[in-house]
Design a binder for these strands. Structure first.
Lengths: 356, 356
DNA sequence: TTGTACGCGTTATCAA
DNA sequence: TTGATAACGCGTACAA
């Protein structure tokens, strides 16, 4: 769809249905017998209004049920006090927590958030971004589902000056801030934990490497293997998506290899992928961690509950959301807020699936 | 806070920071050398424009990066294509699923959703409702966290003509539609399942009874007990909130009773409450279901994973969201869409915690 | 202290 | 086929 086409047909509405019944400044003014400006001053708590008129106006406004029209205000001020939030998968428990953090930061500052879940569909992501632009959001928070290599779309938005902050899944070196965690280090550490169990053949279930977390976590794995002089067998590295189904498919790809080259342990790019892989392992009649050990990344709400509790990396989801929103708001309200990449600290959570 | 006071101070912004850089119809018109109306007609795919001018305008618009300003459109049309969604607890896995369903219905129709999580705080709920009204949302979807008995606030909103649909947690007989599940029947059935295990002393961990689900589920429990001539011991009925902590506290209240009157089984108003109660039971050194059996309601993502898998009622969360949003949109777009209460069908999921 | 005039970006309406 | 004008609700700037 084109940026400049307009899907909504306002013609279809007749005068009738448009009547909202909302009271305006003017109506209050007429009721009291003053000008709209005087009412405006009272409503906005501005000085230079006689106490008596102020009282009269407040009374009338309350009685008539006046509510300020932010749409009109926004048109005048070019500020909507609205932020667009785009997440790839609302069912992944990490994201609701992030949203909770975002809310925490935005509500204090009286911003409202437009939430959209793209279900990892980049087409939808673009469509929504355009809608948000038309709605004139003050800024955008996005965890991108990069199923394409074409960043020009984001470049355009950023160049247009619309404040944008990535969280979790960002695009690097594109001129926007990104709030994430120390993916590479954490990924290296959890791989090293596996190595400390004396496993040699360690596979990797990767996410798309063009997304920040996909790349960083993969690099952490590679670094660990290299540091410990372990062979990196390309056949044991499967790239797929970030959800359970993808993990299931990826693991089955590994299990389709000749048994002699099977990995003894597997690092998954995140917990949902690990859960999917665990299903595949179990279905193959194998045991975790005795036949194949596995670790994840996220500390999903289910990680400690699954049959063989998952060793994983705990991410401060709430903090990520809160920090990202704060950063965005600062970028909105402050002309020269710098672009920065923030890495929050994670924590290794050792359970059973690694063999401990 | 008052309905008519205005928190945002637009004065603080200077001209500079207000400049958005967005292209307007007028600018495109000037570039091409036509009137704004002609450009408007082209952008909105309206007839009566010469093919040549249409082409020229589309080209210019694209080159200049024109994006329609929905704020201005909304001011004219009194329609924002925006819906407010209020949920009490985003961390409860039921709600993200509902939101996914809402999205499904709204995105097809080109509505955007304002999401707010009230953390079960009715004060915040009211504050947000006012903000949404000021933003002139076309309608509101709410699962209310009724920590008060004062419905006048909602009555006012509904009377004002702003379309509003409750989902899951609604207020009855107040003139708004409500999309939920067959709470009473399901609650009766799951209680009867417990009764089929020959338990006599069955307690109930209730939510607030003034909320639809609180009342209905409680009534289902009572009905089951009555039908089977079992004694309803008031001491075994604890009313508290809907989350894990509340369940934990409520169960401990039961366990503080003399041992002779302890319940042999417990019905929880929802899964989070059941999880909290399970923690309390375990901490008391008791075993589930041998010492105390327990059942829930929701089929939370964790229900099948906990130490003793939870017998519960599966709710079609996604469907609830989708139906509620569709109903709201119909109410918005159709003057005489009737008010209705819809009950979706649930499914009993038998696992271990009931004693099976 | 209060009011008037104008503009924000768009569209409906009517005239050319 | 095109354009001029008014209106949506509000706030700034300035005048009274």
């Amino acid at each position: 769809m084109s940026t400049i086409t307009n899907k909504i047909n306002y013609q279809q509405m007749d005068k009738e249905s448009r009547r909202t019944g909302n009271i305006t400044l003017k109506e209050v003014a007429e009721a009291v017998g003053v000008s709209t400006m005087t009412v405006s001053r009272v409503i906005n708590n501005r000085p230079n209004v006689d106490e008596k008129t102020r009282k009269k106006i407040l009374e009338a406004a309350k009685k008539m049920g006046y509510t300020p029209n932010h749409v009109a205000k926004s048109l005048v001020s070019s500020r909507t006090y609205t932020i667009g939030v785009i997440i790839p998968e609302i069912s992944h428990s990490f994201f609701p927590e992030v949203v909770r953090g975002i809310e925490e930061a935005t509500n204090n500052k009286n911003y409202q958030i437009f939430l959209t879940n793209t279900s990892d569909n980049f087409g939808k992501e673009q469509k929504v971004l355009n809608a948000l632009r038309s709605k004139r959001v003050d800024g955008i928070l996005v965890s991108s589902s990069l199923t394409t290599d074409d960043f020009s779309f984001y470049k355009l938005i950023i160049k247009s000056g619309l404040p944008l902050v990535f969280f979790d899944r960002g695009i690097e070196d594109i001129g926007a801030s990104c709030i994430g965690v120390n993916d590479k280090t954490a990924s290296r550490q959890i791989t090293e934990h596996l190595i400390s169990h004396k496993y040699k053949r360690i596979g990797y279930l990767s996410g798309p490497k063009r997304v920040s977390i996909g790349k960083e976590r993969f690099n952490g794995y590679i670094e660990a293997m290299t540091r410990h002089n372990l062979e990196i067998d390309e056949r044991l590295i499967i790239e797929n998506g970030f959800n359970e189904k993808c993990g299931y498919a990826a693991m089955n790809e590994l299990l389709a290899l000749p048994k002699e080259i099977w990995p003894r342990a597997v690092v998954a790019v995140n917990d949902p992928v690990a859960f999917g892989a665990m299903d595949a392992i179990r279905e193959a009649g194998l045991s975790i961690p005795n036949d194949i050990a596995i670790v994840g990344f996220t500390d999903d709400i289910r990680a400690k509950l699954v049959a063989c509790p998952l060793t994983t990396v705990q991410q401060p989801a709430y903090e990520v959301g809160k920090k990202a929103a704060s950063k965005l708001i600062r970028t909105i309200e402050n002309k020269d807020e710098p672009v920065e990449t923030v890495e929050l600290i994670t924590k290794l959570v050792i359970r059973k699936s690694c063999g401990c």
